[in-house]
């Protein structure tokens, strides 16, 4: 009972905040709504027993991705009115596609559940409740899926190379801080102790 209440609460908040993400006028507010959606998504994950994924959702998506979004949104000078104009122009077309997708989901949910080929309570790939999520994922990741794990590392390497190739350029005339030179500089190299007599001043 309490589970059902929690599910409907989280699910409703996810849907509402997702709708507000795309409909709020201020991009910063959109990001905030997105963060709320992520948090409630994490709640849903906890409900189905995927606590590790819930944590990932909070740490990675809220902690890193959404904050990054926030930075980008604040740095970009977005003309809300111009974006709105685009929405108005493609509203009909978007609505058509949304309706088609919705009809497909209904049709397919009806087809799958209604004809009994999909048993919602039964899982095709059963999970072992005795092992915590994180153990199970770790065991699979470093044994059975080691090949894919390594390949995913290569994907990240490509992302890094790509970012550097596309954005890095040598700038001429930039002065860099040379820390070892700064540290090696002694007071006697830079300062001079003089004893000027009265009325004479200092010769530089």
């Amino acid at each position: 009972m309490i589970q059902a209440i929690a599910f409907y609460l989280f699910a409703a908040v996810v849907v509402i905040s997702a709708a507000l993400t795309i409909s709020s006028r201020n991009p910063v507010h959109s990001v905030m709504w997105l963060i709320l959606a992520f948090f409630n998504g994490a709640g849903l994950m906890v409900l189905v027993g995927a606590e590790f994924i819930a944590m990932l959702l909070v740490i990675v998506y809220v902690g890193a991705v959404a904050v990054l979004f926030l930075f980008v949104v604040m740095m970009l000078d977005i003309e809300v009115a111009e974006v709105r104009a685009g929405v108005a122009r493609y509203f009909g077309f978007g609505l058509l596609i949304a309706a088609a997708l919705f009809a497909e989901i209904v049709f397919y949910a009806y087809g799958a559940v209604g004809t009994g080929s999909l048993q919602l309570a039964q899982r095709v790939a059963p999970i072992n409740n005795a092992v915590p999520n994180i153990n199970a994922i770790g065991q699979l990741l470093y044994t059975r899926y080691i090949f894919i794990f390594e390949a995913a590392g290569l994907v990240l390497l490509v992302a890094m190379i790509g970012a550097i190739v596309l954005t890095h350029r040598e700038r001429g005339g930039t002065r860099y801080q040379n820390i070892s030179r700064q540290n090696a500089r002694r007071p006697e190299d830079a300062t001079r102790n003089t004893q000027p007599t009265v009325g004479q001043g200092v010769q530089l």
């Binding site: 994907v155 490509v158 992302a159 790509g162 596309l166």
Partner: peptide, 9 residues
């Protein structure tokens, strides 16, 4: 993804 990501760059 590995192939496509390299291709985009």
């Amino acid at each position: 993804e590995l192939q496509s990501l390299s291709a985009y760059v």
